[in-house]
Design a protein around this nucleic acid. Structure first.
Length: 330
DNA sequence: AAGATTTGACCAGA
DNA sequence: TCTGGTCAAATCTT
């Protein structure tokens, strides 16, 4: 399937998203300032429920912003798709295109760099004639379970003892590798005994149609567009340090409506590795909204040529500044 | 019986 | 030559 997007279309779309993000951030800042004011003044008549409400609003604002940024990464270069054949280009409505991308599980960012969807040549079929993974998207995630639920079905195909590693490394491929030609793989390395901690390293994007992601994205956007009372009280954890588990069904691990176990979650933050831009996959776990466990998405920003921004880190810094540190107003 | 896991072998790249 | 990633037959699980 070939898709072409016109620059004007992209720019107007990006402007719109930027405006929404700005608005959301300003709202979050205002709520945070209100909360800070209450904490600083420490009025006796302030009840904790009010603080909770303000905190929830702040976190909701950040969550919404992150969700937008992760879904529609704003990149200095416009999105292009080179056509692999000589057929004449055709323009599409940008919304339609984004929906198509979501449906195909193609993250918009992925289209920017290689200028086509799939760069990796198909591996040879014969045993042992594979090529080592080079110049392939890689990102890491630390989990507490070896078989972390990440929205895709994996099948173990190997296990190796790795030098300088205490524990063996387990290799997994997508269950749909043969039936759908999905090349996504991962390996999981145990890095700690107690508490158990594993580092999952993902290679490549899922090209399988495991489930329909569109519904999930639509649901999330609906939450953003029409926030309900429940969505306005989302309890978000930016790290592991929050003492209480999420109580909102939007984030509760028991909630399967928004992130059914078989549905690919949202992309993680952008990660640089192996001298190459590594981009979020639609298959990876969203760092904020995913609460199936207390994940650590490991940011690896090793390249100075990085044009992308680790939005989660920015949000963390911004939020801690607003809440605890000196704040430059305006 | 079908699908998943285990495990030793194979091979490419450093 | 060593190491890591993958293959595929054997074995296990459902």
């Amino acid at each position: 399937m070939k898709m072409i997007m016109e620059d004007d279309d992209i720019v107007s779309r990006e402007d719109g998203i930027k405006a929404i993000i700005e608005e959301e951030l300003v709202r979050g800042r205002d709520f945070a300032n209100q909360l800070r004011q209450r904490i600083v003044t420490n009025k006796e008549d302030d009840d904790s429920a009010d603080h909770q409400r303000l905190l929830s609003n702040v976190l909701t604002s950040f969550a919404n912003t992150l969700s937008l940024l992760n879904k529609y990464p704003i990149h200095p270069n416009p999105i292009h798709l080179h056509q692999s054949s000589a057929s004449s280009p055709s323009s599409h409505n940008s919304d339609l295109l984004i929906m198509q991308m979501l449906h195909l599980q193609i993250h918009p960012c992925l289209l920017t760099y290689d200028n086509h969807i799939c760069k990796t040549p198909p591996p040879a079929d014969t045993r042992g004639s594979y090529r080592r993974k080079r110049n392939i998207e890689t990102w890491k995630k630390e989990t507490e379970n070896e078989r972390e639920e990440d929205g895709h079905q994996w099948r173990k195909y190997g296990q190796k003892a790795i030098q300088n590693e205490k524990y063996t490394r387990n290799y997994f491929r997508c269950t749909h590798k043969y039936e759908q030609g999905c090349k996504a793989t991962k390996y999981v390395q145990r890095i700690q005994e107690k508490p158990p901690l594993y580092r999952a390293t993902y290679h490549g994007r899922h090209t399988c149609t495991n489930t329909d992601t569109t519904n999930n994205h639509v649901l999330i956007m609906e939450e953003l567009d029409h926030p309900t009372s429940s969505s306005s009280s989302i309890f978000l954890s930016f790290d592991n340090s929050f003492p209480n588990p999420p109580t909102n069904p939007f984030l509760s691990p028991s909630s399967s409506s928004l992130f059914p176990s078989t549905a690919p979650p949202l992309p993680p933050m952008m990660i640089m590795e192996e001298d190459r831009q590594v981009l979020p996959s639609t298959t990876s776990t969203h760092p904020v909204l995913d609460v199936s466990s207390r994940h650590h998405v490991v940011p690896i920003l090793s390249s100075s040529e990085d044009n992308n921004i680790c939005w989660d880190d920015m949000m963390m810094a911004a939020m801690s500044q607003v809440l605890y540190g000196s704040v430059d107003e305006g």
